[in-house]
Amino acid sequence: MEIGSSAAIQPPGARESTLHPLTALVPRATWATVQAVFWKDWRSEWRTRAALNSIALFSIASPVALSFSVARQRLEPETLAGLLWTVLLFAALVGLARSFVKEEESGTATLLRLSCPPDAVLWGKALFNLVLLVGTQAAAVPIFVLLLNAQLSRAGLLLLVLLLGDVGLAVVSSLLGAIASQARARGSLFAAIAVPLVLPLLVAASTGTAAAFGAVGPQGDFWPALQIMLGYDVAVVTAAWMLFDFVWSA
């Protein structure tokens, strides 16, 4: 599917309205434009596989490194859950800013601004980041569970927690990647501004994962964690939807 052939190209009048996102009509994203951005990112990623390689390598190499250091110890479910999410968070931080930083570095950001409505860029890239996260975790989480001898007592819960966590991570990292790509020292700034924002998600995700690894007692109660994660996801999706215009068209 070619970008030029889809609905991605807007009539000339639509472009200047991005200057006043709250007052004027902003061209809204259609499913076709979101798809166009997604497949564009998919193809350019597939050429170099830079983000995929860094995320996958990181999230597979760190469980191996961890299993060296804690090989003979029986780890508590809470500890395992904390380790898992630390690995997943840093793997995400390594790769997810790429999708926007790449555009700024190669000078294609302006072209993207001209040819797509802002929302399509946000959701296309968020979708791409989500696919990237889910894809790498499909490999990394089983390896983590095997190498660190985690008792997977609630597999469905783990899947749900991972999915909710990935949605939040993908949306936040798209919005913050767009912010960080416009500043100096992009890579390190992205980590600095992303970590505080995903901490609530991370705390809830590790509580939920601990329950999935068989934690009992007050730690085994996973409903509050799921509520927090769902609330967080809704909040960041809404915030990203409303605020992305200002970040992107600046």
């Binding site: 416009q182 505080p196 915030a239 605020l243 970040v247």
Partner: peptide, 10 residues
Amino acid sequence: NLWAVYAIIG
């Protein structure tokens, strides 16, 4: 702009 956006999410 970026400050305002981050302040709102913050």
